[in-house]
Structure formats: structure tokens, C-alpha cells
Design a protein around this nucleic acid. Structure first.
Lengths: 156, 156
DNA sequence: GTTCCTGCAAATCCTTTGCAAGTTC
DNA sequence: GAACTTGCAAAGGATTTGCAGGAAC
């Protein structure tokens, strides 16, 4: 762990462990570091593979357990995209939602203060207290949509 | 099947079967009729139990398979709420999304043309072609929020 | 008669849990 | 040394599949 990727998050995690009378371990550090360096939105398998490139002896079970800890610590968030469970970084990230391309699987993030405002209004109307939301938009990204136009029969 | 519940949907299903060289069966009819008469948002188990009240010999596998057909026929839609897979009627229903109370599990539907308009704008910006979306808002319904205020320690 | 359906049991996939051995505090 | 972690294997839950017998066309 030479560099400084996600230093703040590592501190948060260390504090979380202390606070909950848990212990640090090589495995947890490798998993967190790998998670922080990775691209967004990885599945458990994605993460396991990356982790095992560095430490082939780290098991799937430990990845599952560590992901649970990261969620509790507020560092990771689980999301289900097209039936697949995935995880993304959560710490101090602006809230956002996702566009998902059904063709290439690419995921784009978006956020809209305006949408959130409308949500709040609707919630207020029915006396609902919002605690979170999940908003996914499916379709075809620019590239795949162009492909589909070229070969319309290939479109789902 | 004395009455007229979901007659139109039954016709759609019958047509779907013919078109795909599939066959009608007692089981499929009972399952569809039960589905159409039920409250919204049932799990496979909910539906299985209702179906078995009428025909105890209908198996879980058949319910799974029939639900797949109903989805293909555009009569049912799968949604994952709080980790639970559920199904709701889809045919000719106005598109809508869901508020989910984390305390009592109650589900409220909502829709907003304004939100959809904003979605379209954002999509257009990145050249994304929208094909569908799923928007879930979590929190506490009026009643549960009131309870929580009364007993704040009980709040998640 | 052929093709499709059904229910069962078995298989699969994803995730969690029990446990004995190893680590951290 | 006490308490926590790990990896494995086994258990779980949800869903799918193989198959032999039964029903629809």
C-alpha cells in the first residue's frame, strides 16, 4: 500500500474498526485498497478477482464479509443493476443515480436537484418521510443506439 | 372463473399463447386469474399460496414459469423491492414508481410527468435512448413516521 | 400422434454460517 | 490469553432445469 489512494476512507475504516472493537487485518486492507482503486460498480466477483491478483489466498467469504463492513462504515453502497448486485464507493460522494445501457452494460451516473425537489414535494403530499432513493434509467447509450440504428434487427 | 376480472388481459394472454404456439391449461388460467384478482406487488410465495387455495396441486415451478410468460406477454412486471422480488400488473397501467415504507413495508405508487421530462432532458444531453426506468423512494409513511416520532429509539 | 405442460427432484447461483486454526490486541 | 478473523466446506434461499408422465392441439 504505497500510495495515498483513498487515505481519508482508510482512516474512516480504521476508526470504524476501533469503534466497534474489530481488528485490522492484511485482508481487510487489501480488499479496501483494491475497492478504492477500482473502477466504479463492481460485482463481488470483479472485486474478488482483483483482490486475488494481489493476494490469491484471500477467499470469497472474506470479500463478502468485508463488503458488509464497508457498507456499515458508510464507504460502500450496494446496488442491484439488471439483476446483478454491485458495489460502488459511497463516502462523501454526491448522491447520484444511474443510466444503464442494456446493450453494452455501461453505467452512467447522473443527478438532478430538480428531480429531488419534485420527489420531496410528492412525498410531502402524502406525508412520507424520505430516507433514500434509487433511480435507474435503462436504455441504450449513444454508441449502442447508433449501432442499433445501423443494424435495427439486432436491437432487443 | 365466473366473473369478468381482467377480461381484456385474459384475451391478451390467450392471443399470446396462440401466437407463440403454446397451449392453454387449467393451471395457467387459475394462476392468471389469481394474479389479476390479487392486491398489487405480490411475491412468488404470495401468489403460490393464493393459487394453492384454489388448486392445491399446482406447483411452485408452474407459478414461476407462468409468471415468466405473463412478463413476456406484457401483463406482469417484476420489481425488486427491498431485496424481495415481487410482481405487479402491467397491462395498460399508467407508468408509475414506488414509495416504500421501511417500517411497515407498505408500497405507495406515484408518477410525475415532470420527473420524466427531466429524465428525457438529461438523457438527451448524453445521447442516451431511454427504454424504461425504475425509481424507488425509501423512507417512512405518514403513520410510521408518526410512530417514530412518538418512540424515537425504535426508528431504524 | 405430436408438441407442449406439469410436478417432482435435482441442479444452480448467490450468499451466509459453523467451525477449527490462525491473528490481533 | 481473550476476542476477533480467516478459509473451507456445508448450509440456505431463490430460481431454473431434466425428465417421465399427462394434457392440449
Amino acid at each position: 500500500m504505497k500510495t495515498d489512494v483513498g487515505r481519508e476512507e482508510k482512516e474512516v475504516f480504521a476508526a470504524y474498526l476501533v469503534k466497534n472493537h474489530l481488528k485490522r487485518s492484511e485482508q481487510r486492507e487489501v480488499i479496501l485498497d483494491t475497492f478504492l482503486r477500482s473502477e466504479r460498480h463492481l460485482s463481488v466477483d470483479d472485486l474478488l478477482q482483483l483482490v486475488q491478483k494481489r493476494r490469491p489466498d484471500i477467499g470469497r467469504t472474506t470479500v463478502y464479509r468485508t463488503l458488509k463492513l464497508l457498507q456499515s462504515a458508510g464507504l460502500a453502497q450496494e446496488l442491484v443493476l439488471q439483476g446483478q448486485t454491485r458495489f460502488e464507493r459511497e463516502y462523501k460522494r454526491q448522491h447520484h443515480d444511474h443510466f444503464i445501457c442494456k446493450s453494452c452494460g455501461e453505467i452512467f451516473e447522473f443527478s438532478s436537484a430538480e428531480i429531488e425537489r419534485i420527489q420531496d414535494e410528492i412525498a410531502a403530499d402524502i406525508g412520507f418521510v424520505i430516507d433514500g432513493h434509487r433511480h435507474q434509467i435503462f436504455g441504450y447509450c449513444r454508441d449502442c443506439a447508433a449501432d442499433a440504428k445501423a443494424r435495427p434487427e439486432a436491437r432487443r
